[in-house]
Design a protein around this nucleic acid. Structure first.
Lengths: 260, 260
DNA sequence: GAGTGGTCTAGACCACATT
DNA sequence: ATGTGGTCTAGACCACTCA
């Protein structure tokens, strides 16, 4: 049997194995390109190809001109359920979640509001006709000044014009409460999660490193009579979040519960 | 202001823009490396760097020796909720989901059972002590022969030894029913979703192209008295799935619902 | 056989953080 | 000042699929 593994693959495989088995712990420095050239008797191009593979897997990062380092990740909890159910009017949910975790990191956010034309995503989900405009409430959320996620909400402009929804500051009672007060209580939500590589705009807005995928979490919320009211698009970087939710069912299952 | 964008970046940016605006639709062929060299007056290395960037974003694929093509994706629905609640004993859930979608694709699966030592993930979630062994039930699911996802379940060996759980064929009534019959009805689930690039083993097992992230969906299921019974690890390729679930809440919210 | 992308060599100049 | 990685040139040989 021939062993025709390309050299750059062997570079990648060897380093990956050392990272996986703990020989090279998170934060530790990898050999320099020059050292790898020597070790494998290959040119710079070839060892760079191997390193690039690991970068694109999100395993290592290059900190020029210091060298390559094993990536460290610190995911925080992202909880769609709690977000939907929250009621406490004092803090923003985001702050609550952090408080849950009991660490001392400082949350903050940017809020921007705008009037926009629907794109395909929002138009389909809100069942809009062509001409209808949307109110957009766009938030970027930070921890200790580092961006953590993007949270953009869209509602028919006619529903929220001149309401607090359009005010680019934190709304203490929550925008869902604002919508409820306007006669649109949200009682049902449909969640979709797409997993993909980020768009360049998201890379810059969230300062994403290479090899960092994102979850696009789209929430469509409805009133009792199944009228879609709001679409929220969350962009959640994979290296900074775990998405967590809980489910229960009655036992033994009723016909109702079982057929759902 | 200087415009010092590297050439390979311009190659990538130009092509990405053309893909985004529909000039280059999914499935269409991109210029060859030679054509791009000519267009940008650069060497092969440089245009390859630009193309590699798009490959790693999951936007294009190389089909040697045909050339580069804009990627086509066909996501199917992945529904954690239904999976948990399902009851119908005739079909495997997987077949049900496809039936829901009404397309004619043919599902199939490989099933493997094994006795394994717990790894960190399963040990933490099942609160195992050192020596305890696990029954592993590993499934790879296919559509029309193409792998779609991985679904590995782990239960304390002592719970399921000599039960149907250990039989490497489809269990008509569902393995959750088997556990219920063994006195471990599952009434609560904790879901965690991690978004990351795949490990090499996952790349081969699921035939993933470069630039394809995965969701690692870990479900820990509990009895009424919060005893963890089963850990299921699903590996869900981002290019073939949308994760979908629904939520409702009572309105107006009760104290109970609100503080949850 | 022609043309594609995959792998690789052997050089070069540059920007930049640390020392 | 040194050494790092970032960008780039100009070649080469190969494996593979398609006509």
């Amino acid at each position: 049997m021939r062993t025709n593994t390309p050299i750059y693959q062997r570079v990648a495989d060897d380093l990956r194995a050392e990272i996986a088995d703990g020989t090279r712990p998170p934060g530790s420095q990898l050999p320099t390109e020059a050292e790898l050239q020597e070790k494998y008797g290959a040119t710079r191009y070839t060892v760079r190809q191997g390193l690039a593979a690991l970068v694109n897997e999100g395993l290592i990062v290059s900190r020029r001109p210091l060298g390559y380092f094993v990536r460290e990740i610190h995911p925080m909890i992202y909880r769609p359920q709690q977000e939907f159910r929250r009621k406490q009017p004092d803090l923003d949910l985001f702050a609550q979640l952090l408080a849950d975790e009991g660490n001392g990191r400082q949350p903050s956010q940017d809020i921007e509001v705008a009037i926009v034309q629907p794109n395909a995503t929002t138009r389909d989900r809100l069942k809009l006709n062509e001409s209808e405009l949307l109110a957009a409430r766009r938030r970027t959320r930070y921890i200790d000044g580092e961006p953590y996620n993007i949270n953009d909400s869209y509602v028919r402009l006619s529903f929220v014009q001149d309401s607090e929804f359009m005010s680019p500051v934190d709304v203490a009672r929550g925008t869902n409460q604002v919508l409820a007060d306007l006669g649109k209580p949200l009682v049902r939500a449909l969640d979709e999660i797409y997993v993909r590589m980020p768009k360049p705009e998201e890379v810059t807005r969230l300062k994403l490193g290479p090899g960092t995928p994102v979850a696009e979490h789209i929430v469509t919320t409805y009133t009792f009579d199944d009228e879609p009211v709001q679409v929220t698009i969350n962009i959640v970087p994979g290296d900074r979040h775990v998405i967590v939710f809980e489910r229960t069912r009655e036992w033994p299952p009723t016909e109702q519960g079982a057929s759902e």
